[in-house]
Design a protein around this nucleic acid. Structure first.
Length: 463
RNA sequence: GGCGGUGUAGCCAAGUUGGCCUAAGGCGAUGGUUUGCAAAACCAUUAUUCACCGGUUCAAAUCCGGUCGCCGCCUCCA
């Protein structure tokens, strides 16, 4: 299995640190609002990596932080006149519910920043003791990047050559070096009642700190995989490395994986362009979680993804083709002759599937082979080469594929009355009572269902 | 200015350590099969061409030089 490692900028074979156990940490959401589809691209990517590792026989322990204290959560809770906890609890729950809709497997542990303040203070103390951090005149504690000689190794940025842009030079902090970052931020009036006591006075932790602390606390000093969006490479992940490695003296992460950003309708997603969407916005427009999941999944994670409504339409059609094959294989009219050809085709597809995903999650190759296989299977069905047993073999392959993609149609709840009408149509058609059959079709259409006539009878499907 | 990505059919998107590429796969479109009529489904067809110009080579989407376009990061945005 190979992953493209941001740290080395190379595709490397994955070798876990502890036999079959993989420690994986992913950067979670800041819970001040509903998460947007860009956030979910990242989470779908985490999900894909995790599922593939599990499929390949690893046990994965996955930790993802919930950032429930920062400038934005504080700002918005004050604006809404509610407590920080009230605000962040609401959006944490919303995030998890959205993830579930997109069929993202929940992390094993999702620690909240505010529940690990003590450990964060302890790490800051450790960094001060070891000479990597200092308290400034503004009562904030900063990490001194000049003390950490590997600083910049992940982002490959040369700090001396960084452009001195306005927001840096206008900085009002009392830092020794403009690039030093806050480990602990002293309380100000803007923070309202959000503060914790510390050896440096009341305040709150810096954002970067929580990931270093939680990865160490819930996983280990050195972990296998750390993931996040490409925008986090610098400064967030660079700073995590600095904090963690300065404290432990050990490498923090073996494989850094980053997903690319997404565009919406070809443009960067922004509220002013009107192309800013949360997952629930899209669900409200009538798209399902699995359709969104498929769109987010179907472009390789390191490539920029253009999220469009055309893409959602394409996803819907493609998924329906997959559904249709399953339905046919499950149907009672599968009654062909046994054929070694079929078994061979499944075997080949399975091999290609593993080769594709082992290669840095090459989803394009994986989906191409899947649809090649779908066409092949359809031809087998048409030519009567599939019997009950080979049909099971195919379905079991499709199930294995779905262990990773998780795009299978969920059983839809068709109301009793609708089923009755569909059955009535079946009878009417048997009796060649076309008038009644057409009438029922129209009734169902008004109720939002379409009719599919199969050899097994008429079936109602939600429009 | 620094670092990185990218430009392939109507749309999305593989392929970029050169040669089964006379370029995967998906959507769409068109034709056919099927159907009481439909719908759905299935099958088939759909880029002599890979942003543009020039070069290297027996051979280039793939290498080299140049030009143009788009996108991201450069201190708290996945």
């Amino acid at each position: 299995m190979f992953f493209n490692n941001t740290l080395t900028r190379k595709k490397e074979e994955f070798v876990s640190l502890n036999d079959r156990q993989v420690f994986m940490y992913t950067c979670g959401p800041t819970v001040y609002n509903f998460a947007h589809i860009g956030n979910f691209r990242a989470n779908v990517t985490y999900d894909l990596v995790k599922r593939w590792l599990k499929f390949r026989g690893y046990t994965v322990k996955h930790v993802m932080n919930i950032t429930d204290v920062d400038d934005k959560t504080i700002r918005d809770s004050i604006a809404a006149g509610i407590s920080l906890k009230e605000l962040t609890d609401k959006y944490t729950a919303a995030f998890m519910s959205d993830c579930k809709k997109l069929r993202i497997i929940a992390p094993d542990i999702h620690p909240r920043a505010t529940e690990n303040i003590f450990q964060m203070i302890r790490l800051v103390c450790e960094l001060i003791e070891k000479g990597f951090a200092y308290k400034a005149a503004d009562n904030c504690v900063y990490f001194s990047i000049s003390k950490f000689k590997d600083y910049g190794k992940l982002s490959h940025l040369n700090m001396k050559e960084l452009r001195q842009c306005d927001r840096v030079t206008n900085d009002e902090y009392d830092k020794e070096n403009v690039s030093d970052f806050a480990l602990w931020k002293a309380w100000t009036e803007n923070d309202g009642d959000v503060k914790w006591d510390s050896p440096w006075g009341p305040g709150r932790p810096g954002w970067h700190l929580e990931c270093s602390v939680m990865a160490r606390e819930f996983l280990a000093d050195t972990i296998d995989i750390h993931m996040g969006g490409e925008d986090l490479i610098f400064p967030h992940h660079e700073n995590e490395i600095a904090q963690s490695e300065a404290a432990t003296g050990k490498p923090f992460v073996k494989y850094w994986l980053h997903n690319a950003y997404l565009l919406v309708e070809g443009k960067k997603m922004s509220k002013s362009l009107g192309n800013f969407f949360t997952a629930r916005d899209i669900i409200k427009k009538g798209w399902t979680g699995r359709e969104i999941r498929y769109v987010l999944l179907s472009t390789h994670y390191r490539r920029q993804l253009n999220f469009t409504f055309d893409g959602l339409h394409a996803a819907r059609s493609a998924l329906q083709r997959l559904d249709a094959l399953r339905e046919k294989l499950d149907g009672t009219n599968i009654d062909g002759k046994a054929s070694a050809e079929v078994i061979e085709a499944v075997k080949l597809a399975r091999e290609k599937w593993i080769i594709a995903l082992d290669d840095d999650l090459d989803i394009s190759a994986a989906l191409a082979l899947l649809f090649d296989f779908v066409r092949e299977a359809n031809r087998f069905i048409e030519s009567g080469k599939i019997n009950k047993s080979s049909s099971k073999t195919i379905l079991s392959f499709l199930d294995d594929v779905d262990e990773i993609l998780d795009i299978k149609k969920s059983a839809e709840e068709i109301p009793e009355g609708i089923i009755k009408l569909a059955e009535e149509r079946t009878t009417a058609r048997k009796e060649k009572n076309w008038a009644r059959a057409d009438e029922i079709r129209n009734i169902l259409k008004d109720k939002g269902y379409t009719i599919e006539d199969t050899p097994d009878g008429s079936r109602a499907k939600k429009l």
